[in-house]
Structures are given as C-alpha cells and as structure tokens.
Design a protein around this nucleic acid. Structure first.
Lengths: 168, 168
DNA sequence: TTTTATTTTCAATTATTTTTGAAAGTTCAA
DNA sequence: TTGAACTTTCAAAAATAATTGAAAATAAAA
C-alpha cells in the first residue's frame, strides 16, 4: 500500500471509530489528518484535503481545541492561523478520558448517587430490584471513575506496566 | 424522591449515556426498564411504559438479545413472549466490552496493522509522522485489547482488586 | 382446515444531526 | 478610515438515523 492510500484509510478508520463512539465523524477525521501531518495546517488545507466547507472546518477546529487535542499556531508576518495536533498518543488518550469523564460520566454518577438515596419498602420487589441494579451500577461507575482518575495522572509506561504486571 | 420518579430518571439517564456512546437511545432505555423490572415484561408492557411503537420495541428487543443483554422467556400455557434482563452488572459490562471489541476495536486493529506495514522513505517527514502516529496508536490499541480480553474472562472482585492494588 | 393471537418486516414518515455557504464580524496594514 | 485577508456565525438544506404502523408472516388452538 502506498502512503497516500494509507493516509486515506487512516482518516476513514479514525472517522468511523469516532462516529461509533459518539464523536462527530468529521471531527475525528480532521483530528486524524492533523495527527499524521508533520506541519501545522491552515483551515484551507483542511477544507481541501477533506472536502468540507469553511463553516464546518471552523467549527470542528474549535471543538478540537475545546477537547485539548489541537492548538492554534501563528507564524510571524502571517495573518492565517495554523493548526497543529498534539502527537503524543498517551496525552491524547488522557485528554479524551478527561473530557468524556467530565461531560458524561460525572453527570451520570451524580444521578446514580441521587437514585441510590431513594428509600422504600424492602418487601416491595419493584423497589428491591431498582435499588440493587442502581446500586451495582453505581459501584461499577465509581470504580471506572477511580481508574480513569488514576490514568489521567499517570505516565503511560507506568500505567500499562502496572496493569500487565497483574493482568498478564 | 419517589420510586416512580426515580425509575423515570434512571431510564432517562441510561438512555442519554447510551446515545452519548453511540448506542441507540431507545435500546438503552428498554435495557434500563428491564434492568429495574423484577419480572420479565412483554412487548406490550414495554411499548406502554416507554411509549414506543410495536415495530420499534420488537427490533430493539432483538438487538438487545443480539448483545446478550436480555433473554426471551416463555410461560406455560401462554403464547406471549416475555423478556428478562441479565441483572449481574459485571456480566453486562463484560458482554458490552466483548461486543464492542468485536464490532469496533478488532476491525480498527486490523486496519492499523495493515497501515503499520507500509514502507517508505525515512527521510520523508510525511512518512515519518504517519508511521509514528499509526504505530503509537496501534500499540495503545493493542494494550486496550489485552486489557479487555483479560477483563472479559475475569471475576469482578479479582479484577478491581488487582487494579486497585496497583493504582490505589 | 380455519381462526385467532402474536411476532416480524419494511416502506414511508418523522426526528435528529451534520453540513453548507454567504453574510457579518474581526483584525490589521496602509 | 478604508479595504483586504481572514474568521465566525447561523439559518437553511442535506444527510443520516430512528420510528411508525399496517400488512405479511408465523404459530398455536379450535
């Protein structure tokens, strides 16, 4: 396979994975493009290479900045903005984990805690089943939360080293 | 908060979480409803409680069976089918991990391996950056893959025990 | 067999999400 | 200031996804 074809495949695969996990396909593709670009790109570069509109490119780039995955760069003497992706994959993983935790896991944990506090008749099967399921999910979610929090602070080699020492 | 309100909140929260993670909202809601139901429910029960059509209920229930999250039950002397959700949360987590790995991670790993094999000029920055990013993502994906594989075989208490012994 | 209960299918509709593109906004050099 | 270069906004359009509901299929009972 040639490099040019490989790039297309990578952008496509990253876009598909993103959309399967609730991330806008275009956003994932722009991220993929920047990930494999040695130099920062302009909005126009991105519009051209992915055949997307200016509006779409602009909004997507802002979102990616919001996720902490890319940054704006300026070049002396130029008005245009350049965009450059963080290339360290572990940093990317932590960043995504942090954002999704904040946006999705944390709110759900809040609801689960409220629901865990509901009182009722222990003789009532409706109540018992509700309580059990909510409680169990809450425990699991808390474990995931703790693991993510650790991961977000950790060095990659230490993290996987620790995981595999045990899980092997 | 009353039980009835709590149930609604739970169904809503589970539906929202599902859709944020690429799972059809209705599917997540049907799952939530069955999770907190002590008894198996009929298609009609589900249609009524969630205000969805028969077609939607039927397809969603089949999907949930496909994910290994619910099962059909039959009652002697009755023609109607009843649906009952697996209640063990760790089993649910493993099942979801297994299905998503199979449907999404495995195909991506296949592509990444192909892309990792692309040869090119080490002096070319385009090639070097592509190679580096793809290679790093591939490594990370393989670590996730290993961890999921272990998790899918593991007992809950052992798994979290091991994780926290190290991550603390 | 025929009737009745129930499930499944799927074309059409509805809802949601994404994208476009042109106008408005901003910045800055002249 | 003006105007060129560039960025942002957002209503409308397009694309995608989810849902409906009635007809067809299936299965059991009469």
């Amino acid at each position: 396979m040639e490099l040019a074809e490989g790039k297309q495949k990578f952008i496509e695969a990253w876009g598909r994975l993103g959309s399967e996990w609730g991330i806008n396909r275009t956003m994932a593709q722009v991220h993929a493009l920047l990930l494999i670009s040695p130099e920062a790109l302009t909005t126009e570069d991105i519009m051209d290479q992915l055949s997307i509109s200016r509006g779409n490119a602009n909004m997507t780039l802002r979102d990616l900045i919001g996720w902490g995955l890319i940054e704006k760069q300026h070049r002396p003497g130029e008005r245009k903005e350049y965009f450059y992706a963080e290339k360290d994959v572990w940093t990317i993983a932590r960043q995504v984990a942090q954002e999704r935790k904040k946006r999705e896991l944390d709110p759900v944990l809040k609801v689960l805690n409220e629901l865990s506090a509901i009182k009722g008749d222990e003789k009532n099967p409706e109540y018992k089943t509700f309580k059990k399921s909510v409680g169990d999910i809450n425990k699991l979610a808390k474990n995931v939360d703790k693991t993510l929090t650790t991961m977000m602070k950790a060095e990659e080699s230490w993290f996987w080293g620790s995981i595999f020492k045990i899980l092997k």
